[in-house]
Amino acid sequence: MANEGRYCKSQERRRVPHRLHCARNFPALAMSPLSVSDLAVSRGDRTVFSGLSFRVEPGEILHVQGRNGAGKTTLLETLGGLRVQIAGTIAGGPGASERHWLGHRSALNAALTPLENLRFWCALNGAGDSELLPALDQLGVKAQRNRLCGTLSTGQRRRVALSRLLAVKRPWWFLDEPLAGIDAAGLQLITQLLAAHAGEGGTAVVTSHQALPDSLPRLRALALDA
């Protein structure tokens, strides 16, 4: 707690208007930075990376880069809480109801419609589903809401999955390859979503092979290639 207080104070000195803005959107707890020190993670017997240290400040967008097999997804899974590290610490990470996790698989059952899938997800997380339709609308897949997910295209499924980010407001986003299978218009849409999220004081950790647009505010890259 003491740490957090000190951090907030220094933030306040530097960027007062921004802080006020965040406080309105996300509770104070979300404002603590995520600091990773000397992290080592293994997949089975193989140590994917070790000695990794970095820090993510609130309002930042961290773009995790690296070649195939460098451990981007593994890192994201560890930060998101799906995987336990073999060494090192992760401090100040979000709780279960403060983070969005979007894996490279969209978590949509092919035999259910987007609306059914998302309603189930909301119920699983104890969240209301009143914002679902506007979210689907904003991502341009409202018309497909009652079709079975199995009949949607990859890009459409991706958009449905992304609409969770808008349907339930959470300060931390962990997105694994959100741009995979997305067209040019979709790329622009996701850029807008990320920019708006960061503008509200939210934080995002994104893995992507493609470059994220430079227009994003407070974009920082973390290269995993060692």
């Binding site: 998101g80 809480g81 799906l82 709780g95 279960a96 109801s97 983070r99 996790w101 894996g103 490279h104 698989r105 969209s106 978590a107 949509l108 059952n109 092919a110 997800w121 699983l124 997380n125 104890g126």
Partner: peptide
Amino acid sequence: RADVDDGTLEQWLLADVPFPML
């Protein structure tokens, strides 16, 4: 298998509810 393959089980694990209960 289907829930593992489409990523649904990841969401179960990360939800703020005890996983064994689900």
